[in-house]
Design a protein around this nucleic acid. Sequence first.
DNA 1: ATCATAGTTCGAAAAAAGTCGAACTTAAAG
DNA 2: CTTTAAGTTCGACTTTTTTCGAACTATGAT
Lengths: 101, 101
Amino acid sequence: MERYEHPAIADVDICRLFAALSDPVRLAVVRNLARHGALNCAALTMDRPRSTMSHHFRVLRAAGLVRTTVSGTEHVNALRKTELEARFPGLLRLILEEGGD
Amino acid sequence: MERYEHPAIADVDICRLFAALSDPVRLAVVRNLARHGALNCAALTMDRPRSTMSHHFRVLRAAGLVRTTVSGTEHVNALRKTELEARFPGLLRLILEEGGD
DNA sequence: ATCATAGTTCGAAAAAAGTCGAACTTAAAG
DNA sequence: CTTTAAGTTCGACTTTTTTCGAACTATGAT
């Protein structure tokens, strides 16, 4: 059984956060999550191999943007929406801004 | 006489913007500019050689964050505050957040 | 003209990030 | 127990960033 580590929201570094969002693939993932709620990895394949996406999810988790939970054989990713909005008010709005998909 | 190119605020890409802010040196520069207004490069040496800083200023300009104007022998950098706030409301607040220097 | 000051550009080297195939793990289904 | 589905980990490779010395440009002062 695999569990993931997630930083406490208080420990989230804005610099790392910006770095996570600076990749177009990851930004697209975050936007998808913001729009459609929690999704498993399979639903977020951005036309890339699983190993590539796995890497991006790791970065998103480490940055504090996404929380991943295991449910059966699926790994479900969710935006840490409430926490993020509390710690970085305006961030989510900024990300969703006139956004592509 | 050297002039710099600055993207129109409408052309600024949020992804590039995040990338620019993901470097601690550059984030510190932006925070300094937000606090103290326009500064020349000499005032923003973050304990790095001039060539290194020159590179960072180039990135900040290309991202649309900073406007550099030449005044005599000084190159003065200013945050594109009003434009940025209009295009990305909340961004500046986010950057200044509980911020270090 | 000469010199000093402020900053850029160039080029090379080092470090960090992104990409992806192959092998592996875990859980569920048959 | 075997197979399948969903993802991860590992390792290699490529691309991008960062860093900085050395040489250069432009302005202002002497």
